[in-house]
């Protein structure tokens, strides 16, 4: 597992039924491209977050396939229309097999 991984989620705590809300996500990750040499000239193996899956009570909101062209500390912003209260779940899949997760509830009135 990568060290110092931290996830950050921004979405409103509450919304009206039918509102379109904006979700911002970020994970601290080097996104090692696999094309770099270290200071001794040895190739650094690719090590990236290759998938971000955001679901709402099990239903896919977005499913993102990331490649090495995504910047260090991958950031994504997207929108979702909410009709009921529930929990947004986020899963970041690392090349090394680790899965980092975060969740945030929204209350819809």
């Amino acid at each position: 597992m990568a060290t110092g991984v931290k996830t950050r989620i921004k979405l409103p705590d509450t919304a009206g039924a039918g509102d379109v809300i904006t979700i911002k996500t970020q994970i601290t990750h080097q996104m090692e491209t696999g094309h770099r040499l270290d200071s001794a000239g040895v190739p650094l193996p690719r090590s990236i977050i290759h998938r971000l899956h955001c679901t709402f009570d099990g239903e896919t909101v977005v499913d993102v396939d990331l490649r090495p062209g995504i910047s260090t500390n991958p950031f994504f912003e997207f929108d979702a229309q909410v009709t009921r209260s529930g929990v947004f779940q986020f899963a970041w899949h690392d090349d090394d097999g680790a899965v980092y997760t975060a969740a945030k509830a929204i209350s819809v009135t």
């Binding site: 239903e59 977005v62 993102v64 396939d65 062209g69 995504i70 912003e77 929108d79």
Partner: peptide, 22 residues
């Protein structure tokens, strides 16, 4: 290929923002 995004039914705006390397 830099990134691909599949939108679920809730993602009604079909909009995505990210930060990339060029």
């Amino acid at each position: 290929a830099v990134v691909s995004v599949q939108f679920g039914a809730m993602a009604v705006t079909h909009r995505v923002v990210t930060r990339i390397r060029l």
